[in-house]
Design a protein around this nucleic acid. Structure first.
Ligand SMILES: NC(=O)c1ccc[n+]([C@@H]2O[C@H](COP(=O)([O-])OP(=O)(O)OC[C@H]3O[C@@H](n4cnc5c(N)ncnc54)[C@H](O)[C@@H]3O)[C@@H](O)[C@H]2O)c1
Ligand SMILES: NC(=O)c1ccc[n+]([C@@H]2O[C@H](COP(=O)([O-])OP(=O)(O)OC[C@H]3O[C@@H](n4cnc5c(N)ncnc54)[C@H](O)[C@@H]3O)[C@@H](O)[C@H]2O)c1
Lengths: 209, 209
DNA sequence: CAAAAAACGTGATGAATTTCACAAAGTTAG
DNA sequence: CTAACTTTGTGAAATTCATCACGTTTTTTG
């Protein structure tokens, strides 16, 4: 499992992106692809792509490029595309509902299998094929999911996080503006939409291209 | 306006985050704060915070820390908190509706003022106080917004992008999985939720903490 | 088959960012 | 007022990442 511990984090973040585009190429029937072509598609410098791939060994052929099918199979293995990661979603509001309706399974090794909310009107329903349980039953009904998506009001974020961590969750995708505290064994990725919008506006005003 | 061109981009991305937490402290009636306290709250190393602030001059006092009110006023000016950036949202589906219902104006210098969709059933309605117009009327009704949020199906992303760019938009927050092409004068921030989820899963499997 | 073209893999370099660690300056307590 | 303590601001080192540039291998063309 965790063999190749030397892959830069920046590279690891690009792998799912590569995977998606290579899969597209495969579905289009393309047999080979060069780092330059891939670069145009994913908007990542071609040297960076070659460097990224090289961490996994020599995947390509000089003068030819990369064999699409070979590359695809390689990525499937590397991203554990076959072994699905089960995910829980907490907070079935505006954002949470959008995620449940979205089919995260396209090109994806992750699947939301259960959702939780405090609103009794939602409990017992099914959204996008995912059953909604009551937050009070979190411990009982979350099974052994290892990843949670947090889309609750920010006030509730830390309390729920503590329960998730206690229950053994090791990764949290946090959409709330709260910066949650977790033990060092738990990984949190923050997606802060307000900050993204504000910083885009700031860049436009102060870093004219 | 664009005086301080020397602020590292990594710092610029953290400014809205700092602003939000400083504002919270102010609302809580706190008079001063140290880089260490702020570090605990925003989960950014305290040395990084001091370095970030130092790009704007000496904002703090040795042995004391930072005066919350002073800091807040400084950030308000710096982030142009008073001058609101008007934003258009394209694609009023699951995700787009969530954004419209969300009040981006809390602690925020950005405001969605108009939305567009191809679905006639939506056109003419108002969601979260934002009027929805038909995508055919994009050029006519978008006014002079400079930023657009893209939440359309990925197939439509490039076509709409071209129209936005043609119309003078200079920043795009792209939520579609498509990697769109723009001239070098336009800034695109990609938020790829599937990639975020997949890469979190990958990190958990390969980089155990 | 030979020459030209294509494209990988990577050493070297440089840019950007984070972090350490400490002198200097200010605060607090007695 | 003095001593002990706190905390900033910043050189310097460390780290991470992206990009250049080219030798080498393979493919393609004529
Ligand atoms: N909607 C957006 O566009 C947007 C943008 C940026 C950030 N966010 C953040 O995402 C989070 C969710 O936003 P939203 O718009 O979906 O909010 P929402 O109010 O629509 O949904 C929140 C949901 O969480 C549920 N909830 C409340 N307390 C709970 C608890 N203790 N346990 C379980 N469920 C609980 C509520 O019943 C509700 O269904 C918020 O923190 C918000 O700040 C949202
Ligand atoms: N919903 C999610 O959780 C989620 C997650 C990851 C990525 N995304 C991406 O975000 C985008 C939107 O997702 P969604 O779930 O809201 O989809 P959706 O299908 O619910 O909404 C898309 C909306 O765009 C409108 N539309 C279609 N073509 C258009 C055109 N040419 N001009 C204007 N409007 C048009 C549709 O009428 C619809 O209202 C998609 O690209 C999707 O891949 C969504």
């Amino acid at each position: 499992m965790g063999d190749e511990m030397k892959i830069p984090q920046a590279t690891a973040k690009r792998l799912p992106l590569y995977y998606r585009f290579i899969n597209n190429l495969y579905l289009q029937g393309k047999l080979r692809v060069s780092s330059k072509e891939l670069s145009d598609a994913v908007k990542v410098d071609s040297a960076t792509i070659r460097r990224d791939f090289s961490y996994f060994g020599a995947l390509g052929k000089k003068g030819y490029g990369y064999n699409v099918e070979h590359l695809l199979q390689f990525f499937r293995r590397t991203l554990d595309q076959d072994e699905t990661t089960e995910v829980a979603l907490i907070g079935v509001g505006n954002l949470g509902t959008a995620f449940l309706n979205y089919n995260f399974m396209k090109n994806n090794n992750t699947k939301i299998v259960v959702a939780f909310d405090a609103n009794d009107g939602l409990v017992g329903t099914e959204i996008g094929g995912v059953p909604v349980a009551h937050i009070d039953d979190l411990e009982e009904k979350m099974g052994n999911v290892s990843v949670a998506i947090l889309t609750v009001p920010s006030q509730a974020a830390q309390g729920i996080t503590d329960r998730l961590v206690e229950r053994g969750v090791s990764g949290i995708l946090n959409f709330t503006p709260a910066r949650i505290s977790v033990p060092p064994t738990v990984r949190v990725h923050h997606i802060d939409l307000s900050v993204e919008l504000q910083s885009l506006a700031y860049f436009l005003k102060h870093y004219p291209l």
